[in-house]
Nucleic acid binder design. Structure first.
Length: 262
DNA sequence: AACCAAAGCAACCGCCGAAGG
DNA sequence: CCCTTCGGCGGTTGCTTTGGT
């Protein structure tokens, strides 16, 4: 079995959208499998039932607002997050015209932005990593991660967490089976395929042949196919591992793939 | 003006419970 | 009942746009 480890997003075109809408008008939204089959046939691109459903629910359903969240909505979101945690759909239902995806994006984007600002210029050991939405259960961390867009980067950069907040975060981390970093280390040290790992440089060379490489993909971002033997790489790991493109010589693709830990 | 990092956001996919055979 | 399929939800990724130098 071979599969892509890095996924490639395929945007829906206007034409595809209208075909999807027409199909749904005909079949309804109860049987996504037949919707998918119908749509795929007409647009000549495979769109899974899931993809069709996502597109409909997150974008094409009537009444979805595309404007940025208003101050009032943001206030509501903050309040609701305290109550609902990560039940995004529940929150979206209480904000007319907003989808679960929008609400979710809003929080993840906000948190990611603030973590970046906070980490900027800090020692590695002081850097904050996203663990889970449970991080927001600590008021100090919550205030930091949900800082409004306008707050200056400098201010966040200067912010330090108290001992209490740090130990809260530590306990959160311990609740998990292991951080991505630990999982990575584990994989790197236990799998034969990584046996040539040079710890000092943080480089891994994978010497197996590619099962298949589509030369069309080589030019842009890594979306080529990996050998099946490295499948068990957990999601979310790309933060810690970087794939480098294989060499291409005289149109031939080298069978070497470099992975670097970041 | 050209580059690059960050932000914004659409899309993808795993997990799991419900449904149905 | 068990097994399989479906789809709802939540979390993650990556393409495009924006903004800073």
């Amino acid at each position: 079995m071979v599969r892509k480890i890095l996924r490639k997003a395929k945007l829906w075109t206007l034409k595809e959208d209208s075909i999807l809408k027409a199909t749904i008008k005909k079949i309804g939204i109860k049987n996504w499998r037949s919707v998918s089959q119908d749509v795929s046939k007409k647009i000549k691109i495979a769109r899974t039932a899931k993809q069709c459903r996502d597109r409909w629910l997150n974008y094409l359903t009537k009444g979805i607002k595309i404007s940025a969240f208003s101050e009032i909505e943001i206030k509501k979101l903050y309040k609701m997050q305290k109550i609902y945690g990560n039940r995004w759909l529940k929150m979206a239902k209480r904000l007319p015209g907003r989808t679960e995806n929008q609400v979710k994006n809003f929080f993840y984007a906000m948190i990611r932005r603030n973590i970046r600002k906070f980490n900027k210029g800090k020692e590695e050991s002081e850097k904050l990593k996203f663990i889970s939405m449970d991080m927001l259960k600590n008021n100090e961390v919550r205030k930091l991660l949900l800082s409004k867009k306008g707050l200056s980067s400098a201010k966040l950069r200067q912010t330090k967490l108290s001992k209490e907040a740090l130990s809260f975060l530590k306990s959160l981390r311990n609740d998990q089976k292991g951080t991505n970093e630990e999982i990575t280390k584990n994989i790197l040290s236990n799998r034969d395929i990584f046996k040539d790992l040079d710890q000092s440089e943080g480089k891994v060379e994978i010497l197996e042949n590619f099962d298949q490489v589509n030369s069309d993909n080589i030019k842009d971002k890594p979306s080529f196919l990996f050998p099946s033997c490295i499948l068990p790489i957990p999601l979310g790991l790309s933060e810690y591992l970087k794939y480098e493109m294989p060499e291409v010589k005289n149109g031939e693709i080298s069978d070497r793939l470099i992975m670097k830990s970041l």
